[in-house]
Simulated assay, not measured.
Amino acid sequence: MDKITLVIDFFLEHKLLLTVLIIVLISLVKRFIISRIRGDVAFLSDVQRKWMSRTKNSTFFIIVMLLFMLWQTEISKFALSVTAIAIAFVVASKEIILCFTGSIQRASSRSFVIGDWIEVGKICGEVIEHNLMATVIQEIDLHHGQYHFTGKTATLPNSMFFTYAVKNLNFMKRYVYHSFNITVVEFVNLYPLFPALTSQIEQHCEDFNEVAKRYNNIIEKHAGVDLPGSEPHIHVNSGPAGEQLVHIMIFCPTERAVHLEQQIREDFMIAYHQAFSPKEPHTEQSAITE
């Protein structure tokens, strides 16, 4: 007991050494727990990411609380001595305070969780980690009509949640309203092509049509709004130079959206070529009669 008391007194007298020891021990425990959660898998699941994020946040909170308790006396003396510069300190740490309050706002509104697809400003991606200061996402190329990961990791300070609207795109992980335009320079009547084109689109979507309808109904009930529906939609608009813009929208599995778009473009081009390509002129010999 005497030795233990001596060790405790020694560390209490050398608080800096004890601080380093606390940080090192808790960091080692955190790394051990995270390695156990991760295991040997190549790709992390949403559950693993959630527990890894909780572990990191919990260990950080424990370190802060232990260090505050250890240095409480010194902190109190320091706070009393720097009252005159408190306002300057708040102004200088405004961004840090905004990050903390942004984290509180995210947690209270439950706008997203780990594994959700979100859009903040012009950045879209899947949330892989969030803490008191920042949110980390794997970027997804949505603005170019793609739905694949770019391989880039974006770290968003939580203060951005006060500046930009946070859009939760989580339902797009499975099915998506995929829209694209086909430009036709010549002014011709395109409407006769649409019934056959609609039938071809329905054939392309036949294997997942029933699942798409059920998923569309689930989204409508969850959002409480009347969505366009799972059937294909075709509209024609005019461009600024007088060209015609054929707007097509389909409700399809996210991973198949780009492939289906290419198939529909090919179908439209074939139908357009067959309907409006110039006919072969007759030769003079074919016009000669006996």
Rank of each mutant, 00 (worst) to 15 (best):
Q48A: 10
F43G: 06
I33G: 00
A79H: 05
T73P: 01
S53E: 04
L142W: 08
E129K: 08
T83Q: 13
F60E: 11
K77G: 11
Q105I: 09
D141G: 04
G125W: 03
E119A: 10
I63G: 04
S108H: 04
V91W: 14
A88G: 15
R49G: 04
I34P: 04
M65Y: 09
Q138N: 15
S35I: 07
V113M: 07
L25V: 15
I75G: 02
K94V: 14
M52Y: 05
M52H: 05
I118F: 04
N57K: 03
C99V: 01
G115F: 03
F32L: 12
A84Q: 13
R36M: 15
S103R: 03
D116F: 01
L98P: 01
A84L: 11
I140Y: 04
A84Y: 09
K122A: 13
A86L: 14
S27F: 11
G121I: 03
T55M: 06
E126Y: 03
L80P: 04
R31P: 02
I140G: 02
I37Q: 03
H14M: 02
I128M: 12
H143F: 13
C99R: 06
V82I: 12
G102R: 01
E95T: 14
I85H: 06
V29E: 04
D116N: 09
M69C: 08
V47C: 07
K122I: 10
L28G: 05
V90C: 13
R110S: 08
